[in-house]
């Protein structure tokens, strides 16, 4: 066991950051699951596309970085909307397993799309940022504790984004429609709400958040390639299940907890570093056997 207070505090920030990114991706899973009972397998890959959109906006269209990110958010939102329209909408009334398999196919499709059009080699934001790339390496120093600036930015942006999300879901009309649909689709459609449009909006919203998370992910771990989103995608899904899938607060809580647990385990037991990716799955199995509905999830009873 490695007990070094400086290291622990530094890694607390790291854990918050990684956890925040998991949370941002996890809310996308949980919103879609809450409404359609569908694991959007392609969500992690939508995040990858968010990274590529931002990257090409900056490299090819010579946009300033900030504008590039805004462009990517909108482009990814449209992508999310299209994925739903093309692949999932035709299967709304099909057995759930068909929709899930289609989602896996969609994930595979987006990955190969990225390989064909963007190449399978690693790319990085470092070169494109040029003189601005110092943002990645600059650090704050408080006593002995060193925290990279980017970590703090990521944490702040994550909190800000989540606040906006909660505002949209709980204070606006479309948010109300989303919550209504997750409770009862047929009744909601009787109330004169365009269900398909709202579902499309949910996908777009989740994808926009994934784009934000993706760009920050790519700034923190600078190399990305077409399969980058696979692992964070799986982890974020686990985070969503951990917190109670279908519950927004649960996804946020699960994301932060998962990130913190992961980073803290590595900090305390550096020798298990290589097995880092295995923890998340063990947590998944544990939580599903002990409390299948997750930390904040509601227990549903299946009627025969």
């Amino acid at each position: 066991m490695n007990l070094n207070s400086v290291l622990i505090i530094q890694n607390l920030f790291n854990g918050l950051m990684v956890g925040g990114l998991y949370a941002l991706i996890a809310v996308g899973y949980t919103m879609v699951y809450g409404i359609l009972r569908l694991i959007n397998f392609a969500h992690g890959d939508i995040m990858t596309m968010g990274i590529y959109f931002a990257f090409y906006a900056v490299v090819l269209m010579k946009m300033p970085f900030f504008l590039g990110v805004i462009f990517s958010i909108f482009a990814t939102a449209i992508l999310g909307f299209l994925v739903d329209r093309i692949a999932y909408k035709p299967l709304r009334n099909a057995p759930r397993i068909s929709a899930l398999i289609t989602a896996i196919g969609m994930s595979f499709f987006i990955e190969s799309f990225a390989v064909v059009f963007f190449g399978s080699n690693y790319k990085s934001f470092l070169k494109t940022l040029g003189s601005n790339s110092s943002i990645i390496f600059k650090t704050y120093k408080i006593g002995k504790i060193i925290i990279p600036q980017i970590t703090l930015y990521v944490i702040l942006i994550t909190f800000f984004t989540l606040l906006i999300l909660f505002y949209i879901v709980y204070k606006t009309k479309i948010g109300m429609a989303m919550r209504a649909i997750s409770a009862d689709i047929p009744t909601t459609s009787l109330m004169g709400i365009n269900v398909d449009l709202v579902i499309g909006f949910t996908f777009a919203l989740g994808s926009a958040l994934a784009a934000i998370a993706g760009v920050m992910w790519a700034l923190r771990y600078p190399n990305f390639y077409p399969y980058t989103g696979f692992n964070p995608g799986l982890k974020a899904f686990i985070a969503a299940v951990f917190g109670g899938i279908g519950s927004l607060q649960g996804a946020v809580l699960g994301g932060f907890l998962l990130g913190l647990i992961e980073i803290m385990l590595i900090t305390l037991f550096p020798s298990v570093m290589q097995y880092k990716d295995a923890f998340a799955f063990l947590i998944l199995i544990l939580i599903l056997t002990i409390k299948p509905s997750g930390l904040l999830g509601k227990r549903s009873i299946v009627k025969v």
Binding site: L91, F113, V115, G119, S120
Partner: peptide, 17 residues
């Protein structure tokens, strides 16, 4: 490069739908 997988996954999704 990779077009093979793109075609396969397209066929897959179309099959499902």
């Amino acid at each position: 490069k990779g077009l093979r997988l793109l075609v396969i996954s397209t066929i897959f999704i179309l099959t499902m739908i």
